[in-house]
Design a protein around this nucleic acid. Structure first.
Length: 896
RNA sequence: GGGGCGGUAGCUCAGUUGGGAGAGCGCUGCAAUCGCACUGCAGAGGUCGAGGGUUCGACUCCCUUCCGCUCCA
């Protein structure tokens, strides 16, 4: 029997050796350069530019195996994984490719050759499909492909027509497309599967898809033939391995066996038995599949997080963890321990796995630990609500409880539902949906801001190239936007919030974290007040209002940016770049920008870092930024082709952001991109900056906080704000120094000494009082009358605290065994009372009720339980009176 | 940006309408043992995240804030 490794190799060798293909390694499973794509989900992802014609392919014929992940997004197989024999979130796609080289004839002939001659598959079990045609879109039936199949010997009763859904491939709404032909394998024992092709049964499965890219879909939906025709084929590696090894299930192949053994080893569960109706075996499949996805994704640089790609990975990890805990009896983290097995199994094909498996394991382990913590807490909450439900005789978990479990502990409803089902309960889905709806509604609505998202009418483009050069510029009014409607003629209305449109402007529109400019637009009889500036497409909206006067479309005006505010903004923006650099230098290379906000008061900077900054780190960072400011380095912007800009040493960009090509790069220090070193700041940035660093004046970090797991936020000030922040602190310090009568640099020591002194004083006073108190108590005890075996101890104590009296009453109880105690004393000018009644007498004297009555005498309130009570009041002089009342009441109660 | 939950001994966590801060594990000492483990006894260890407020009295209720987790946008 062939091993999986042999099968993969034979595929590659077949195309490379026999048919002159070039082997191209798999691209990363995390598409770092395509923000629209969560994961690489098909072999063609890395070759897309060649099909689109945006780049020339360096080779004509290629063969490869591509790492793919399908989870989250459109192709979401996540929920099916583990439940059947053939779904995976991670899989390999074998493919051979022609970029404008061979076409249908060769592709079909070679596919047949590989399957029937090299691999010697039974021809009688192979079926093929070809496109049936689509007259509405002028696409003919693919008779060509059908003929080539007949030529290699496929009989007509093994040739099927397929619909657009199965046999026509399109990249998107527009772009390259074409018919495809699929090869299916009949697994039925008697080879009677010809009517089961494309019926979604595991008995007859698609093993290879050959796509013939020959058309371009135009925006008007018409098709035109492409000048160069391409072939793109994809064969699911796990499937073909199962077929060639004669296995029912992909999971029965030697690709998964080592993983199952490892899972068994780390969980101590019974071995994998391959059953579909056993949740234990489902768990094995889920875990084996998911650990492949996690290991490959993390190896390629993805990180679990609470949004997007990272969130999908987190869900996958949790799903695996949950199956392991519930069905295999894993009690602690176990997924991380599976990584070495996978690296050993696949490292020779994907050497990147061997680069740093320890890092991958560390990430997985830490995720597992947080999940387990949450899971334990969530299970507890679940048990509470389940118990409560049973208690009320209901068999329904409320929607609110399910909602809380999701939003607090990340339990998806189906998890809650499953857990409920296991104990015979149901979940109120309707209530859940209702709450969920309100929740998402509120989350999305609660961000105010005047944001123009879509407009009716055509927006004229604005030339805003002046924003880097000047703060005043002549312009002509082209119109305005009001309540999402574009007006292009007439008089600008008074007092309403509108977005004024000009032909050119020097106003900076909000972008790249920098806030929009404010200012005025002068002309006619009154200035237009600009509160902020935003960009929509190529149009700049000067958002504000016209208080009075006349302003008309077509009029010549002058745009004047609020120069003082802009200056503060520019200081902060340049300071942000210096901060970014300093963070990396002080904390390490993992510091990646996650977002920023720059305005006239501050710079707020979010970055990847997983723990709070220490005081020392903050000091170092401030110091580095201020050194750069003091060095009075020039700040220059250069515009470069994107490819070239990416080559600049240590250049920084926000991950996931789309940058134009050419891109603007802001350099601090060197004026030539080639001269940039790791100690200089270079960032892709479209913002406005000061000309020299010294203009920032001063930089100070004022706060830091966590924004989410692994993301920290620091807020800093420069320019005037920094001065104010420093002065504010200096003022507080000098006030403290004055109050403490010591120099500023001794404040810490002085406070420590004071705290120490205070503590000692407290202790000695406590001791002193305790002595007095014990003596007083003993006196009271000596003269206490006895009634029915209980000592009745009522009296006043010297000034003390409740704490002390508690200890003394404990002593009394252990001494007397049975007693009724009413004590009063002064505590910082107020009267305090405590009543204690031992068990046997609580039905005759209720401590709580008694104290309520007697505390009224000293003008206070209090309460407690039958056996003990505490109270206090302001009229300390009336204490004897209160105690006298207590004596009477106790005497009455005991029938004296 | 908006919401939910949590922060109590070195660790994991209890703490029930506001009325003496606890358990388990760990730690120290003693006993027992040739020694270790186990066991028994004793003990140390807490600004109940921080700061305000309400109250005679706050771990508990209210506000602010920090830290962690989580969901949505």
């Amino acid at each position: 029997m062939r091993t999986a490794d042999q099968i993969r190799q034979e595929f590659i060798d077949f195309f490379v050796r026999r048919h002159d293909h070039i082997y191209v390694p798999s691209s990363s499973v995390v598409p770092h350069d395509d923000p629209t794509l969560l994961f690489t989900n098909a072999g063609m992802n890395q070759f897309k530019p060649y099909f689109l014609g945006t780049r020339q392919p360096p080779w004509r014929r290629v063969a490869n195996t591509q790492k793919c992940i399908r989870a989250g997004g459109k192709h979401n197989d996540l929920d099916d994984v583990g439940k059947d024999t053939y779904h995976h979130t991670f899989f390999e796609m074998l493919g051979n490719w022609s970029f404008g080289d061979y076409f249908k004839k060769e592709a079909i002939a070679w596919a047949w050759e590989l399957l029937t001659e090299v691999w010697e598959l039974d021809r009688r079990r192979l079926h093929v499909t070809v496109f049936e045609g689509d007259p509405d879109n002028h696409v003919p039936r693919d008779d060509e492909a059908a003929q080539y199949w007949r030529d290699v010997g496929v009989p007509d009763d093994h040739l099927h027509l397929g619909s657009k859904k199965d046999n026509f491939w399109e990249m998107g709404d527009t772009g390259p497309c074409g018919p495809c032909t699929e090869i299916h394998y009949d697994k039925t024992p008697d080879r009677r599967g010809r009517n089961l092709v494309n019926r979604g049964t595991p008995d007859v499965i698609e093993i290879w898809n050959l796509v013939f890219i020959q058309f371009n879909r135009n925006p008007d939906q018409s098709l035109t033939p492409l000048p160069a025709q391409h072939v793109d084929t994809g064969m699911g590696f796990e499937r073909i391995t199962a077929v060639l090894q004669g296995k029912e299930s992909n999971y029965d192949t030697d690709l998964f066996a080592p993983l199952f053994e490892a899972i068994q080893r780390v969980t101590q569960a019974p071995p994998y038995a391959g059953r579909l109706d056993d949740l234990k075996d489902t768990a094995y499949r889920v875990i084996a599949d998911h650990i492949r996805t996690l290991t490959f994704a993390l190896t390629d640089g993805a990180v679990p997080s609470n949004e997007k790609r990272g969130y999908v990975l987190r869900s996958i990890l949790r799903r695996a963890e949950r199956y392991g805990r519930q069905y295999l009896g894993a009690s602690g983290p176990f997924l991380a321990d599976l990584v070495p097995t996978l690296v050993e199994r696949m490292g020779h094909v994907f050497p990147e796995l061997r680069r740093d498996p320890a890092r991958v394991q560390a990430i997985i382990r830490s995720e597992e630990e947080t999940f387990i913590r949450n899971f334990t807490r969530g299970v507890k909450l679940f048990q509470d609500v389940a118990e409560a439900a049973r208690h009320t005789g209901s068999n329904v978990i409320s929607g609110k409880a399910a909602f809380d479990l999701h939003t607090t502990y990340g339990f998806f409803v189906d998890i809650t539902e499953q857990m409920a089902a296991e104990v015979g309960l149901k979940v109120d889905r309707r209530e859940f949906q209702q709450l969920w709806h309100e929740f998402t509604e509120r989350s999305s609505k609660d961000r105010k801001k005047f944001v123009v998202t879509a407009v009716q009418g055509t927006l004229p483009a604005t030339d805003d190239s002046l924003k880097y050069e000047t703060l005043r510029s002549p312009a002509q009014i082209l119109g305005w936007v009001q309540e999402n409607i574009v007006f292009s003629g007439g008089l600008v209305p008074h007092g309403r919030s509108v977005g004024l449109l000009l032909d050119r402007t020097c106003f900076y529109a909000e972008a790249g974290g920098q806030v929009g400019d404010s200012g005025i637009i002068v002309g006619g009889t009154g200035p237009f007040v600009v509160e902020t500036t935003q960009k929509l497409g190529d149009a700049v909206l000067h958002i504000g209002y016209l208080p009075e006067g006349l302003l008309e479309v077509g009029q010549q005006v002058e745009a004047q940016v609020d120069a003082a505010r802009r200056a503060e903004i520019m200081r902060h923006h340049t300071a942000t770049h210096l901060l970014n650099l300093a963070l990396r230098q002080v904390l390490g290379p993992h510091v990646e920008q996650k977002g920023s906000l720059v305005d006239e008061q501050k710079t707020r900077f979010d970055f990847a870092h997983d723990k709070p900054l220490t005081n020392d780190e903050i000091l170092q960072i401030e110091q580095r930024v201020n050194e750069q400011i003091a060095a009075d380095r020039p700040v220059v912007a250069v515009t470069l082709p994107l490819d070239q800009a990416k080559q600049i040493t240590g250049v920084r960009a926000v991950f996931g952001e789309k940058y134009p090509d050419p891109v603007r790069v802001v350099l601090i220090g060197p004026e030539d991109p080639a001269a940039v070193t790791w100690n200089d700041s270079a960032e892709f940035c479209g913002g406005t900056h000061i000309a020299r660093t010294s203009q920032a004046g001063l930089f100070k970090i004022v706060s830091q906080e966590a924004v989410g797991k692994g993301v920290r936020r620091v807020t800093g000030v420069s320019g005037r704000g920094a001065l104010e922040a420093m002065q504010g602190m200096a003022r507080i310090l000098s006030q403290l120094a004055e109050r403490l009568q010591c120099p500023v640099d001794q404040i810490t020591a002085r406070v420590e000494a004071l705290q120490d002194e205070l503590r000692k004083l407290h202790e000695s006073r406590k001791k002193e009082q305790a002595g007095d108190l014990a003596a007083a108590i003993d006196r009271l005890l000596a003269e206490a009358p006895e009634r029915d075996g209980a000592r009745i101890i009522i009296g006043e104590l010297p000034p003390t605290t409740m704490e002390q009296v508690r200890q003394q009453t404990d002593r009394l109880i252990s001494k007397t065994g049975s007693c009724i105690v009413v004590l009063g004393w002064r505590d910082s000018e107020k009267a305090a009372l405590r009543v204690v009644v031992t068990d046997k007498f609580t039905h005759r004297v209720h401590a709580g009720n008694l104290i309520k009555e007697i505390v009224a005498v000293v003008g206070g309130r209090g309460g407690g339980k039958p056996e003990k009570a505490e109270a206090g009041g302001p009229l300390a002089d009336k204490l004897p009176e209160a105690l006298a009342l207590a004596r009477r009441r106790v005497a009455e109660a005991l029938g004296v």
